[in-house]
């Protein structure tokens, strides 16, 4: 049995009788992609869960106004990206309010995450990614792990393809340097 297209699911969602079923299918179709998109940015599972729920609730509220000239997939990624960046900004503000100059640290999250199974090399890679600016980190994750095309990524992030390439290029350079430096330190030690 063929899966219904996004267009078909949107039509079912607009129908009151099939709205819940269509909504469930949309969630099931995009929940993993959106989850990993958010998780690679926030590292922590609980934070990711909160943001992902907000993304789907916003989808429920705004799906009636969704324009069909855009793809549902692109629109959901944009919503998830914005929610993730907003969450990070809020956490930074909360940390500054509570602890002063202690910043919201992705590295610390990585150290404390119980749901991280990677080895030291994987952890080193994640630590290198965590040192990147948020925009570069986002582009690197989407390109390196999710293998999203620059064109699609340009629609999702509303950024030019050239800017995405540059971000990705700078991100790769920084990560390479970080890993090399850490290896040199380890070999010397």
């Amino acid at each position: 049995m063929e899966e219904p297209t996004d267009k078909a699911l949107l039509e079912q969602f607009r129908d009151e009788r099939t709205r819940n079923a269509a909504f469930t299918k949309i969630i099931q179709r995009y929940q993993r992609k959106l989850y990993w998109h958010i998780r690679r940015m926030l590292i922590d599972h609980d934070d990711t869960d909160d943001v992902l729920q907000n993304v789907f609730i916003k989808m429920w509220k705004g799906l009636d106004n969704f324009k069909e000239d855009a793809q549902l997939y692109t629109w959901l990624y944009r919503v998830a990206t914005n929610e993730t960046l907003t969450f990070i900004k809020q956490r930074k503000a909360d940390m500054f309010t509570r602890y002063g100059d202690v910043e919201y640290s992705i590295e610390s999250k990585l150290q404390d995450d119980n749901y991280f199974r990677g080895d030291e090399i994987q952890k080193k890679l994640q630590m290198a990614i965590a040192t990147l600016p948020e925009k570069q980190r986002l582009v690197f994750n989407m390109k390196y792990f999710e293998e999203i095309k620059y064109e699609d990524m340009s629609k999702m992030l509303d950024t030019s393809v050239g800017a995405l390439k540059a971000s990705y290029h700078h991100a790769v350079k920084k990560i390479e340097e970080y890993i090399r430096n850490s290896d040199d330190v380890n070999m010397k030690s």
């Binding site: 989850y35 599972h45 749901y115 991280f116 990677g118 080895d119 994987q122 790769v172 390479e176």
Partner: peptide, 25 residues
């Protein structure tokens, strides 16, 4: 451009609680 990064591979090091995606909808 990044030979060291190329050697690391693209494995997903993160875990998800059991049944999380099943219960999410």
């Amino acid at each position: 451009y990044a030979p060291t990064l190329a050697k690391l591979g693209r494995q997903n090091p993160f875990l998800v609680p059991d049944g999380y995606f099943d219960a999410l909808p």
